[in-house]
């Protein structure tokens, strides 16, 4: 690691004041610290959000589950509220990394990092969640803008994510055999506004498949997407899976997610 200064603010406002220059936010650190160790980032200041109590917690507010940005994956996975309202979300959180990563890694950190193989972005996009920051609320559809890119501004900190409770949802992940990140992960949700199908791992960023959503709107069952072909164009290709294989897995995982959602 390069040398840096360390701050541990007690409030979001305090944290915002520390930002600027080459300062970086530290949430759970499960991606960021390995990045620092490899000297792939050189912040002059680290602002650790771990001391801000208001950023953690899980609440059911009306027809949504609202989860604080610093809530650990393990807490989401173990939450009775989440399990009751959106079991697919609890299952997804329980499959991120490994237990130790889940004990440190946070929702906000994962979302802000927007790793193309991370699980949470699929849940946000699939459920049509909204990201609340210290400044505004951004719909998931507008939040994930590209590989490791989001709509977050320089002095913006995610505070909470609001997940509308769907009628049904399922997540199926095909893990990279080495890293255990998603080679392909598909989140399917049946919501009052329609069916949403979000894919992570397969492409340069999380994306929806409109053709599947349309096919599922009238018939929420695995068989409904038989006629939908997923193009390999633009999908990731590496030693763990070609674009063609990933395209195929998108359909297989989508079907498993639909089945998990009771379709």
């Amino acid at each position: 690691m390069y040398s840096f200064d360390y701050h541990r603010p007690r409030s979001v406002d305090d944290a915002v004041r520390q930002l600027g220059g080459e300062a970086k936010l530290l949430a759970g650190g499960q991606t960021f610290i390995p990045t620092l160790k490899q000297r792939l980032a050189q912040p002059d200041k680290i602002v650790d959000l771990g001391g801000i109590a208001e950023l953690s917690g899980i609440k059911v507010e009306g027809d949504a589950v609202v989860i604080g940005a610093m809530t650990r994956h393990g807490a989401v996975a173990a939450s009775a509220e989440v399990a009751k309202a959106i079991p697919a979300l609890a299952k997804l959180a329980g499959g991120i990394g490994d237990p130790q990563v889940r004990n440190m890694g946070t929702l906000g950190g994962s979302v802000a990092n927007n790793d193309p193989a991370a699980d949470y972005p699929a849940a946000l996009l699939g459920l049509g969640a909204s990201v609340e920051t210290n400044k505004r609320t951004v719909a998931a559809d507008d939040f994930f803008t590209g590989m490791f890119e989001t709509a977050l501004g320089e002095d913006e900190i995610i505070t909470r994510v609001r997940f509308p409770v769907p009628q049904a949802a399922g997540y199926a992940k095909f893990a990279n055999p080495a890293s255990r990140y998603a080679l392909v992960g598909v989140f399917v949700a049946r919501t009052p506004g329609g069916v949403r199908v979000a894919v992570t791992g397969a492409g340069p960023g999380v994306f929806r498949i409109g053709a599947m959503e349309t096919a599922l709107a009238g018939n929420f069952s695995a068989g409904a997407i038989d006629g939908v072909s997923v193009s390999a164009d633009g999908l990731n290709s590496d030693m763990h899976g070609s674009a063609e294989y990933r395209a195929h897995l998108v359909t297989v995982m989508a079907k498993r997610a639909i089945a998990a959602a009771g379709g």
Partner: peptide
Amino acid sequence: CDTSQCGACVVHVDGRSVKSCTMLAMQAD
């Protein structure tokens, strides 16, 4: 390892198991 995967460094912090290679000492203050 240096990619937070092997788990040889696991300790408990406030009762939860974590990878001590993926946490700053300051975070455990």
